[in-house]
Design a protein around this nucleic acid. Structure first.
Length: 843
RNA sequence: GCGAGCGUGCUGAAAUUGGUAAACAGACAGGACUUAAAAUCCUGCGGGCGGUAACGCCCUUGUGGGUUCAAGUCCCACCGCUCGCACCA
């Protein structure tokens, strides 16, 4: 006998919510709450990670709506990007059509989860309605000097055939393709994110509702270091080399200068075959360099003057271990106090001078010594001798400034964000090149610059370059011939401001308007995967600052609270040959795992991925068990920030539970959903206990949801239902208790709750109800359970009236168990008494 | 190498922030119903010792130390795992 058919009831209520636009958000006098989950890339199908992400956000959205907030919970599509273009090339179809079909399919899937989303605000980054405004923002940023073009060596992904930003290179590989990234010299568009390095770093302190982990990652990425710039004069040439260092005090230990092969000094060696070969060798490997790589050098035969030692000169080398992107692409080598310089000096037989005397190791101790400790003292350093390191650092910087040989300088690891992509399926950059090569932004009236649909994907290279007419245009001012920019924008540009567009999704003449932004921004809770800790979140924080500079009135920090949800993991199996086997095909017998007759090796549980064959399709789960089961399971077991272990047994058990609840509540119940109140005074002792339990559940469930402790919130609901399922309670209390249960669980299982309410004759929507309030008297119950301890070990649990003092507790203890009382009191040294908690007899 | 975090039953986990370790689940085992199975329901479920029994006693949060009346929680050292960064001067 099975009465619970989620397939029928879920569709019904979803249709009603959408038709009645119950989730449409409008500005009003109520307090706003903007909850946002990171919008998806329309790959065609939702995966478990989406299901988890959107369930978490939806529970929160529904909770705040019931708590009388004006909730904004929108959804859109991060719909530009490589997969569409690749699919178009492979199957000879239109990237736009492919994307739009995927969107339509995924939208149906998202709706089948029953998400309380304002679909009227749906946006899609590949629509010209969206990117028109983005092009305007590009022009604003350009005019403000925050976008510029330069020739530089960039990260080139040979599989995706495009440039990548530094943040998009992970372990030397492209973040999407996994290909080993090469260095290539190209003319590229950059966003001047480094103009905000300091701010982006300092303002992390104000993000008190962000996970520490994410803040630490951003901090390390921005990478602040405090040091100095030192100028070295090249002997017999009208040239200087500027060097950034965090250890200027070790200048007397300097024995060489090393520069990157990309350093401007390379201009002097362009004719040199040997140098060219050396440079190629360095560039090839430079996207993936690590400490263990061999040090390579190319001597320049140039020398520089030591700034403080007369007659002393230092040889200059090109070296593979010096990075062009950091500091000035040049260092002074101090082998005694830097491991890399030490390796280099040893290999190329360069002299080593120790300039630090440590307390432990005295002069001549083991080198290199790169530590800094309080009592270390400078030696062999002329006017720095006998100073502590920290004092020496100050002294040398002052000396540099005084003599004009350098200055104090702060360095950041953060580099400007390269936004050019040599691909078709992205937002066109609204720039033209005039015949004289001059760059001109497109006038606002010409926006949007639309992507052409009639492109030829059969030829290699960027289809926009290959297009016969698209790039040909005229300058709107001079009327002369001009060429369009054929690079498109990195899709992270699209997602850096979409949260603003959600506030004014329909407005035509500007990206967003002030009134909407004022009311809705910032995003109160932003929920998404930890993988965006740096990329998307840093870009968005930069964008809001950059747009502020362009006079847009928006908050500096776009996301007030950040929740980073963990991955959905699943067990993995391999056969003896190392081939992955789907967990669904594995049989467990006598403590071993088999696929057909073959014995398998059980791997550890890993993030669901096609390559490991451990993916489960959420659509199938929803079809068989219903969205409410899937939703409840997704939040039951693990807290959101931790990885979730997928388990089909867990799903089945969750479904069983909902069936039980549904069957039970389909009986003749008179819910009191609107009032949700009961006069607790008329109840007998036993009933009062139930009543108290219900009210403490309201309280603690609410607290748990507020702080994203969904797993313990669910545990409390189950405790409540366990309690009231098995006891015979008078009908008023029974109806009241189940009404509360139904309302609490309705934010997790909205369809089931609504269906039950409706079956009982209730014809309003639960999502419009106020959140249940609790009877405060219940939280200050009259009795508490106190622990009686002997030497800190539990002996007894004693129920006593609230707030009584030590003597009274002892009196009750004697009444309850005089033998134990006497035993504890005899020869007691000390009694520790914590009111309402513990009494400890110390002997 | 640098930085961050974690380590609790067979498993996912909980523990009001120093005060009853294992809530709530899953798996498993036993039982009831059934000709049988499934479904459902009930019971048990960290380890050891004692008792016919109700029950009692002892041990137990990666390992070893420490602080405290009291430690999963705080401090020190070690072991193991995960994540991020990494020739960043």
């Amino acid at each position: 006998m099975q009465n619970y058919h989620p397939q029928k009831i879920e569709k019904k209520w979803q249709a009603r919510w959408i038709n009645e636009k119950v989730n449409a958000a409008h500005i009003c006098d109520k307090e706003k709450f903007y909850v946002l989950e990171m919008f998806p890339y329309p790959s065609g199908k939702i995966h478990m990670g989406h299901l988890r992400n959107y369930t978490i956000g939806d529970v929160v959205a529904r909770f705040f709506k019931n708590n009388n907030f004006n909730v904004l919970h929108p959804m859109g599509w991060d719909s530009f990007g490589m997969p569409a273009e690749n699919a178009a090339i492979e199957n000879n179809l239109s990237a736009r059509k492919w994307t739009e079909e995927n969107i339509s399919n995924m939208k149906k899937q998202l709706q089948s989860i029953g998400l309380a989303i304002d679909w009227n605000r749906e946006i899609s980054t590949c629509s010209d309605e969206y990117y028109k405004h983005q092009q305007k923002l590009f022009i604003d940023l350009y005019n403000k000097g925050l976008i510029y073009k330069k020739d530089s060596y960039v990260n080139w992904d040979p599989v995706d055939n495009t440039v990548l930003a530094n943040e998009q290179v992970i372990d030397g590989r492209g973040w999407r393709s996994g290909a080993i990234v090469e260095k290539k010299k190209l003319s590229q568009w950059f966003l001047k994110i480094t103009a905000f390095s300091k701010e982006l770093l300092d303002d992390l302190k104000g993000l008190d509702e962000w996970p520490e982990k994410v803040k630490t990652m951003q901090k390390n990425w921005i990478g602040y270091s405090d040091g100095a710039e030192i100028i070295f004069k090249v002997v017999n040439k009208n040239l200087e080399i500027k060097v950034f260092t965090t250890r200027p005090e070790t200048i007397f230990g300097a024995s060489f200068i090393a520069v990157s092969v990309e350093h401007e000094l390379n201009l002097l060696f362009n004719h040199d075959k040997g140098f060219q070969i050396f440079r190629e060798k360095c560039l090839k490997n430079q996207s993936r360099i690590d400490n263990e790589d061999e040090k390579l050098s190319f001597p320049t035969k140039l020398f520089v003057e030591h700034p403080f030692i007369k007659e002393k000169t230092l040889p200059v080398f090109f070296a593979n271990y010096v990075l062009m992107d950091y500091g000035n692409g040049a260092i002074f080598g101090c082998p005694a106090h830097d491991n890399r310089d030490y390796d280099f000096a040893k290999k190329f037989k360069i002299s080593i001078t120790n300039v630090i005397k440590t307390v432990k190791k005295n002069e001549g101790g083991e080198l290199p010594y790169s530590g800094i400790s309080e009592n270390d003292i400078m030696i062999n350093s002329e006017f720095l001798n006998d100073l502590k390191i920290s004092e020496a650092k100050k002294t040398i910087i002052n000396k540099l400034i005084k003599t004009g040989k350098g200055k104090k300088k702060i360095g950041f690891k953060l580099r400007d964000w390269g936004i050019s992509r040599q691909r078709y399926w992205g937002c066109p950059i609204p720039v033209i090149y005039k015949e004289d090569g001059e760059i001109q932004t497109v006038s606002e009236s010409e926006l949007p610059i639309k992507l052409p649909d009639d492109i030829d994907l059969s030829k290699p290279g960027n289809p926009l370059v290959n297009h016969s007419s698209w790039k040909k245009t005229k300058c709107s001012i001079t009327g002369l011939n001009a060429t369009r920019e054929t690079d498109t924008l990195d899709t992270f540009f699209d997602s850096s401001w979409y949260y603003l567009r959600f506030c004014s999704p329909k407005i035509k003449d500007k990206p967003f308007n002030e009134e909407d932004i004022n009311y809705w921004m910032p995003v109160d809770h932003y929920i998404g995967g930890i993988e965006h800790a740096i990329l998307h979140l840093l870009y968005s924080r930069f964008f809001s600052r950059a747009l502020k500079e362009c006079n847009y009135k928006i908050p500096k920090e776009p996301f007030k609270k950040l929740i980073t949800q963990g991955m959905v993991c699943h067990e993995t199996f391999k056969n003896k040959k190392g081939k992955w086997i789907e967990p669904g095909e594995v049989v467990f017998k006598n403590g071993k795992y088999y696929h057909n007759t073959e014995e398998l090796i059980k791997g550890r549980s890993e993030k669901m991925s096609k390559s490991k064959k451990n993916v489960v399709d959420p659509d199938e789960i929803i079809e068989i068990y219903g969205a409410d089961t899937a939703r409840l399971f997704m939040i039951s077991d693990s807290p959101p920030e931790r990885d979730l272990e997928w388990s089909i047994d867990g799903i089945k058990a969750t479904h069983k539970y909902l069936c039980k609840i549904f069957d039970f509540l389909s009986k003749d119940l008179k819910f009191v959903l609107d009032t949700g109140k009961l006069d607790g005074k008329k109840l007998n002792e036993f009933e009062k206990n139930i009543y108290t339990f219900v009210n403490t559940t309201i309280y603690s469930f609410t607290e748990d949801i507020k702080s994203y402790r969904f797993n313990t919130a669910v545990a409390k609901l189950r405790e409540l239902s366990n309690k009231i399922l098995t006891r015979g309670i008078c009908s008023d209390l029974f109806d009241y208790s189940w009404s509360i249960f139904l309302r609490l669980i309705s934010i997790i299982t909205p369809h089931l709750s609504q269906e039950i309410a409706s079956k009982s004759g209730y014809n309003k929507l639960l999502c419009d109800l106020d959140w249940p309030s609790y009877d405060k008297l219940c939280l200050t119950s009259k009795n508490v359970k106190m622990v009686v301890q002997k030497n800190g070990k539990k002996k007894l649990l004693l129920e006593v009236p609230m707030d009584i003092d030590q003597d009274e507790v002892i009196k009750i203890l004697f009444n309850h168990n005089s033998k134990l009382g006497i035993e504890l009191k005899t020869s007691v040294k000390k009694i520790i008494f914590i009111k309402n908690k513990i009494i400890n007899f110390v002997k």
